[in-house]
Amino acid sequence: MGTEQEQRRKERLDRGIKVRSDGLYALMSWRELSYLTVPRMVLIVGFLILPLIMPSMYWERVISIVCIYALLAISFDFMAHFLGLVSLGGAFFIGVGGYISAVLNHSLGLPPLVSIAVSTIVGALICTLVLLPCLPLRGVYFAIVTLMYPLFLARLIEALNILGGTDGIMGLDSFPGRWIEQYFMILMVLGFLFGMRRLVNTDLGLVLRAVKDNDQAVRASGMSITFYKAIAVFIASAMGCLGGACLVHIYMWAGISLFALDFSILPIAATVIGGSGTLVGPLLGCLILVPISELLRAFGTLRIVFYSLILVGFIVLRSEGLMVYGQRKYHQFERWVRV
């Protein structure tokens, strides 16, 4: 009978080890402990040895770029899935952080590590202040306004001919050494990744998710949603600004291409591919997309076509993303059962 076929459904069961290793019990055996820690260790160790195994200077540079995009992608994922604000303005964060760092380094002569630190904080403050009036906006409106900010700043710099105009600010100091550069970037990404994962599970993170879920109830609970949104935007834009500040010191140049749409679209693509809402997924997505895009560099703008199409494919097929898929396979086994 044909209907027999349809009366089966997929059953998903948690693996016994997952059930056992929830909570403190994990400390009881090495097997359970390693079940929890191995995936994390693979990520951390893998990242730390990455600079050691890279064949050439060029690919070492790619690691840094991956890290910058990863910062942006994590910040996008955080804002979109834990706060409910979809920002298409990754380039805005990059540009603000980058230009501040460039000015600090170029005009005041601050060493790169200092200017990066300062521009992360100051840039995040500026981004938060600028986005503050937009925070009550929802969905499409917020997305559009964040998409417009980087374009606006780019045109403004062009029109006013400030901050080096179309030529940009040249001759910035680079990092003291390539090892410092790479490990600084890697540590920042790992630090932010695990920091954010912890944050979203604290009570503050819970409140942010509540703002996304149901902002009216949060208001009725005596909390200002704008305040909590601003906190989250500050954190997210700090990540973006950090990325931008590092970028200008890696390329030793800051120009209006910092506001380029690449910085807005690629992190989104990485998030969608890697698995949104996981925070690790975006990192994974960047690890896949950025090197591919570097390999395709010879084909010029074709790479943009390529990752736009990947993005469309993933969105249209409503894919859950690699990370969610991987987590499911790791924690559960699936089987077909007859109903």
């Binding site: 819970l206 509540a210 879920d213 109830a217 609970s221 909390m223």
Partner: peptide
């Protein structure tokens, strides 16, 4: 207007986080 994606007791963690 509960927070549908949270368990019932976690729903109360949010108002308990408020200044009041």
């Amino acid at each position: 207007r509960p927070y549908y994606s949270l368990p019932a007791y976690k729903n109360l963690v949010i108002p308990l986080f408020s200044p009041r």
